[in-house]
Amino acid sequence: MKCTRRSFLKFAGASAVCLTLGQMGFNLEAARAYAGSLKIEGAKEVTTICPFCAVCCQVIAYVRDGKLVATEGDPDFPVNEGALCAKGAALFTMYTSQHRLLKPMYRAPYSDKWEEKDWDWTLNQIARRVKEARDRDIILQNAAGKTVNRFESIFMMGTSHASNEECAVIHQAMRGLGVVYMDHQART
């Protein structure tokens, strides 16, 4: 059976009005109780892409009331045709993982713990560190007297997890600062 998302939508549209398990051929009370309701029924579908490996399987995120309820391969995408591997199949619990970082954290020099901070403080502190280093270290001319405008004492590492638009932002930001030590995991 080739069940595309479109054929399912047609089905689900009908089911929203009248689906009972009896009509689906389920006569037994027990089976009806067991089947329950479909958790993605009526949820909004948003197209996203699996964040692992460059097959870039397209994924449908099912969202209800602003909350993610499930993720599944997009059957219409010609490359993965709805399929996913173990990692792609785990996208939903990756999102709900209790290990997620949710606030900016700060570790002071020689401290043995993380502290929660707000974004405003954090971005100001980082900007301050960058400016101090840049004003002090940027090399305007090299030993041969050539203009080089090179900020060598900081680096940017990452990331291929960034979208194309984010890559464009990061690249422009770094060259604007004068950073040459920039690289990412295309090499690992």
């Binding site: 069940c3 391969g73 993965n80 996913l84 591997c85």
Partner: peptide, 17 residues
């Protein structure tokens, strides 16, 4: 059973590459 009732394939089948 919930998916099959709604005309969807079981999730394992759907996922298989």
């Amino acid at each position: 059973v919930d998916r099959v009732s709604a005309g969807l394939p079981p999730v394992c089948v759907k996922t298989c590459p």
